[in-house]
Simulated assay, not measured.
Amino acid sequence: MPGGDVASAEADNARAYTEAVRVVLGELPDLPHVPELPGRGAVASMTGRALAVVAELGADLQPAGWRMTDRTGIDQRRARSLLAQDLDTVEELSQGFAGTFKTQVAGPWTLAATVEKPRGDKVLSDHGARRELSQALAEGVRTHVADLRRRVPTAARLVVQVDEPVLAAVLGGRVPTANGFGRHRSVDLPEASALLAEVLGAITDAGAEPWVHSCAPGTPWDLVRGAGARGLLVDVSQLDAGATDHLAEHLEAGGVVGLGVLPTTDPAGAVSDRTFTEQVLRWCDMVGLDAEELGEQVVVTPGCGLAGASEAWARRVLEVAATTARNLS
């Protein structure tokens, strides 16, 4: 029966998410997070999760992807329901947790470049629309942080990771138009900084710590720092000399840097935490900083998300990341 198939799939998804939370809490006791499992469909994707968080703006899923609408669509309601269910699981399994806890959300520029306006083309194409979406995201993030604080009340510190993988493309005028034949005009740096700062400021105002993640080459880390990011999460393989200098300055100023040195997909052979420990030490030595003195300012991460990883490697990479971090300390 079709209804039974749907119910069975939902039960399987719930079990998978419960296991994901257990893995995160077990393997990453120093920095567990709200897991994302995009394999469950568009409502669980990075964009779907963000649209579950935004306040007072409607959206729905169309054949071409997510689109803003006059009212909340069925797919946006599903995304919000799934997020609430996932947070119920996090609340249940994290009882008594007293350390740093992290959640994540797509940033305003990545969202503007991946969501369409009601009549088509990206929100990115319209100054007023991207401003409205940024404001709705900022307000929604405040509510999301408050909800997470209620659900994990014993956490000593909350971190919100703002994912901006498309920021460099937005600034470089490389985001395709809806028809695929053109590119959206580049956004001015002051506006790019202002909208990002609005979301990061909302996180700070809500009592959490804003970190920004991007694994794209050319990400303007000086702009991200200026917008108020406390943590910068990078793919080390994508850094140029200028970006490396900005990260070193951020560490010297007391900020946090997440060094993405671990593979995001299954490696061809065996991996060793010693290899990644040495890589982090070499990077710190290159910028003239002592990894041991930096302590919790350096976080060891995969280069980007693990959406393309097998379940076995997703577990293994978390284990290796935690071991590498302990080696450094």
Rank of each mutant, 00 (worst) to 15 (best):
H33R: 12
A178W: 01
D240E: 12
E319A: 14
G295V: 00
V53T: 14
L93F: 00
G173E: 05
D245M: 04
R274G: 14
L289E: 10
A16E: 14
L167F: 13
E319D: 15
A314Q: 09
P165K: 02
P165F: 02
L233F: 05
A194T: 01
R315S: 11
R151K: 06
D285C: 01
H33Y: 14
A241D: 13
A20W: 10
A312E: 14
A291M: 02
A16H: 10
D290H: 07
R174Q: 11
Q95W: 02
W283H: 14
F276D: 07
L37N: 15
L247V: 07
V6H: 12
P118Q: 05
G26C: 08
G48E: 03
V166L: 13
R149F: 00
A291R: 12
R40Q: 15
V105I: 15
P32A: 12
F276E: 08
V257T: 04
T100C: 09
G201P: 11
L239T: 07
M286V: 01
A192R: 00
V317K: 03
A321L: 11
H246L: 08
R282G: 05
A307W: 06
W283E: 07
A241T: 10
P210H: 02
G207H: 06
R316S: 11
D30M: 13
S193C: 04
L328W: 05
S272P: 05
P217C: 02
A50E: 01
T69A: 13
S214F: 04
R282L: 12
A168M: 11
P165S: 05
P35H: 11
G242Y: 06
V115H: 14
A156F: 04
P63E: 05
D121Y: 00
T69V: 03
A312I: 01
V141P: 09
R22P: 03
E292T: 14
A314T: 11
V141E: 13
H213V: 04
A314C: 05
W313E: 07
F97P: 01
L57W: 02
A14M: 09
V141K: 14
T275C: 06
V287M: 08
T265N: 08
F97D: 03
T114G: 08
T72R: 08
L87T: 06
G140D: 10
A106G: 09
E56D: 15
A155G: 12
L195E: 09
D188P: 10
V257Q: 08
V187E: 11
D86Y: 05
V287T: 07
A229R: 10
V300W: 02
A55G: 03
V43A: 03
A59H: 02
R326N: 14
E116H: 09
R282C: 07
D205N: 05
G65W: 10
L137W: 01
G4W: 11
D163N: 12
R80C: 09
E191P: 02
V234I: 15
P35C: 13
C284T: 15
V145Q: 00
A138M: 05
A168K: 12
V317L: 07
T177E: 09
H184D: 09
D290N: 14
